[in-house]
């Protein structure tokens, strides 16, 4: 991710070649404008794929192009460095730190933990379950495998501890970097629990490899992922950002109509699943990929509304934990001029 910081464009900025940016901004007018979207090949990115495939970006005069990443953090780095224009990722310590340098702005909401819709599940190893770890109340004294310190899993654990009224230090947090590693540790009983997206959690539970003992939305309804762009874009090309958001909102609307109620119109579900399959699990045959794609449909905020109050709460939590320096608040990293903001702090 560091080498992305030193990309061509970044170096151009470095050398003070503001000329480039100026020239780029004036050459907008007629021809479709190029925007690069940093995306992960996850089902959760589906609204972006829908908007692209159905020509909503083109309708806005945008020549959109995807740049695919293996992990969320590099997307943020690439946007900060100007290589990518838009991205969707979880709010993590790393994201807040990058945003604190002034280069990033959160402009819309995406995945939100919402009661009644599948979200992140709390999984417990069979060993721990048999030893009595059968409910979230029993968390103290147990271990939780997570990707990284300062990740969204870390935050969720913090919120669960808060809701249940025990200090987070009562849980042994074990950073294992990769989801695969956490699953391996969970299956072999070396960590007691993990928090994970539903389409991974459910098969593990069904296959008897682990037990789901709860859902994060019961303890922490929160804004997991957000849409963001560079400060440079919000300040010098607000029109372009508005057009992008509009297309994105149409993608979300289509997605919500079909994927959040799949039983209503199986034919439409099938069609949209096929569309998503072009990007997600493309290496698997459709019959195998479809159930995972369908199960991976998560709740995405209508019209990309942004839960600003929760963004604030998250930032403050990370600051309180010492992962993010103090001295700035959510207003420095959120731009509410593009979507409807709700749960506004007083």
């Amino acid at each position: 991710m560091i080498d992305r910081l030193f990309s061509r464009r970044r170096v151009a900025h470095l050398l003070g070649a503001a000329l480039f940016a100026a020239a780029g901004a004036t050459a907008t007018a007629q021809a479709a404008e190029k925007v690069t979207i940093g995306a992960l090949r996850f089902t959760s990115s589906a609204p972006l794929f829908v908007a692209f495939e159905r020509g909503y970006f083109a309708d806005e005069g945008l020549d959109a192009e995807f740049s695919f990443f293996q992990a969320a953090q590099p997307v943020a780095v690439a946007i900060a460095s100007g290589d990518v224009d838009f991205g969707v990722t979880a709010l993590t310590g790393g994201f807040f730190n990058l945003a604190s340098k002034g280069a990033l702005k959160v402009i819309g909401g995406h995945f939100h933990e919402e009661k009644g819709y599948d979200g992140s599940a709390i999984l417990v190893s069979n060993k721990a379950y048999e030893a009595g770890f059968t409910s979230v109340d029993k968390f103290p004294g147990h271990s939780l495998g997570m990707t990284q310190v300062g990740s969204s899993f870390h935050y969720m654990a913090g919120r669960i501890a808060e809701a249940k009224g025990f200090p987070l230090s009562d849980i042994t947090l074990l950073p294992l970097q990769k989801v695969g590693a956490i699953i391996a540790a969970l299956k072999s009983g070396q960590v007691d629990s993990m928090i994970i997206v539903p389409h991974i959690a459910r098969p593990l539970d069904r296959g008897g490899a682990a037990k789901i003992i709860g859902w994060v939305y019961d303890y922490a309804p929160y804004q997991v992922t957000t849409l963001f762009t560079s400060t440079n874009n919000t300040e010098s090309k607000p029109e372009l950002v508005k057009r992008f958001v509009k297309a994105y909102q149409r993608g979300i609307a289509d997605y919500r109509a079909v994927m959040l109620n799949q039983a209503k119109d199986p034919a439409a579900t099938e069609e949209m699943t096929k569309l998503i399959h072009k990007y997600v699990y493309a290496d698997r045959p459709y019959e195998k990929a479809a159930p995972s794609i369908k199960a991976g449909a998560i709740y995405v905020n209508e019209n990309a509304r942004l839960d600003v109050g929760d963004v604030k709460a998250q930032l403050e939590w990370f600051q309180a934990q010492g992962f993010v320096p103090g001295g700035f608040d959510y207003r420095a990293i959120v731009d509410t001029s593009f979507v409807e903001a709700y749960n506004l702090p007083k």
Binding site: M1, V77, T92, G94, Q148, G150, S151, P175, L176
Partner: peptide, 19 residues
């Protein structure tokens, strides 16, 4: 990378994750 709370490597990893 594997479940380390302390260690120079863990420190570097955490610093990278937190940017």
């Amino acid at each position: 990378m594997i479940g380390a709370e302390f260690g120079i490597g863990a420190y570097v990893l955490l610093a990278g994750n937190l940017m």
